[in-house]
């Protein structure tokens, strides 16, 4: 019901001069404006996230830190390990030690640098994902900025747009690190170019799939908690307890072993034993996990007060 204030201020005597406002507007209501579709918004929102990562001070600082850390990984552990493997291959020594520490599959990679990179990347990128993707919506929601965006889009578009943006950022980082390893291998032996390119593609595709469920998990957590730090802490706690509980159940009731499929990164230990195109055999696991976690995250986002 509307309450109408009855007419007032038909005229007013006042001693104060009330100057006229001089604001001018160029209202362009007539201008043709097309309503953007779902994918258009997805693109705009993910591009804005790319801008945040690559064109803001905070983003640049994170990137420089990552680049420095990666430079030292590349320069020392990765290069030395690869050189060692090359030497040992030449000497036809056995790889019993590498088998013992779980790095035996390195010998199956035709380019040792990629073998070593593969093992490093399987540890580094999921961890990076938990921190890099932790703030997809949480701080914007706490600050109220998300309200400005949701008024012009929808919760689904913001949720998936942010997720897509973070995935692209990670894909670029994965690509950059893989290319730097590729360059290092070519520097050692330029004739490896033709054989290295397919392996490079396999590595990049695989690593993007590896970070997919972790990023989706962080998207869901970010939609629920109040800060990136909380999202990271919850991710570690949930992952640890989930792994412990499901592994415990599976030990006593082997029929429940399939529940391990729900643990992000469950396939990582098996992936380390594979090389080349074989690594894509397990691609269905992260894809499935990613879809389930995204559906869960979308459900949270739709119900969350902004």
């Amino acid at each position: 019901m509307v309450i109408t204030i009855y007419p007032k201020l038909q005229f007013t005597y006042t001693r104060f001069f009330s100057g006229q406002s001089c604001y001018k507007t160029s209202l362009n209501r007539e201008a043709k404006i097309m309503q953007p579709g779902f994918f258009n918004h997805l693109l705009l929102i993910s591009l804005f996230e790319l801008k945040r990562a690559f064109a803001t001070r905070k983003g640049m600082l994170s990137l420089i830190t990552f680049a420095v850390v990666w430079y030292f990984i590349l320069l020392y552990p990765l290069r030395f390990a690869a050189e060692l493997l090359v030497q040992e291959k030449g000497l036809k020594q056995d790889f019993g030690f590498l088998d013992f520490i779980g790095f035996g599959s390195i010998q199956h990679w035709s380019i040792p640098e990629f073998g070593v990179f593969w093992h490093f990347a399987l540890i580094i990128f999921p961890m990076l994902s938990i921190t890099l993707a932790a703030d997809q919506t949480s701080s914007d929601r706490e600050r109220g900025t998300l309200r400005f965006i949701v008024m012009r889009s929808s919760r689904d578009r913001v949720f998936f747009g942010r997720f897509a943006g973070v995935m692209v950022i990670q894909a670029l980082l994965i690509g950059a690190t893989a290319f730097s390893t590729f360059a290092m291998a070519l520097y050692r032996d330029a004739t490896l170019l033709s054989s290295a390119l397919p392996n490079l593609l396999v590595l990049i595709v695989n690593l993007i799939l590896v970070v997919l469920p972790f990023t989706a998990m962080m998207a869901a957590l970010s939609a629920q908690v109040k800060s990136a730090r909380q999202a990271t802490v919850w991710a570690i706690l949930i992952w640890t307890f989930m792994t412990g509980i499901i592994s415990g159940f599976a030990y006593y009731l082997p029929a429940l072993a399939f529940l391990k499929l729900l643990i992000p990164g469950y396939q990582l230990s098996e992936l380390t034993q594979l090389s080349g195109w074989q690594t894509l055999q397990l691609a269905y696991i992260p894809v499935l996990q990613g879809l389930i976690l995204l559906a869960f995250g979308r459900w949270i986002m739709a119900r969350q007060a902004l």
Partner: peptide, 17 residues
């Protein structure tokens, strides 16, 4: 979208941009 807009109480713009 574009028809309805709001000034939410205490909402702040993104500090990075």
């Amino acid at each position: 979208n574009g028809k309805v807009s709001a000034l939410p109480q205490d909402a702040r713009l993104d500090p990075s941009f």
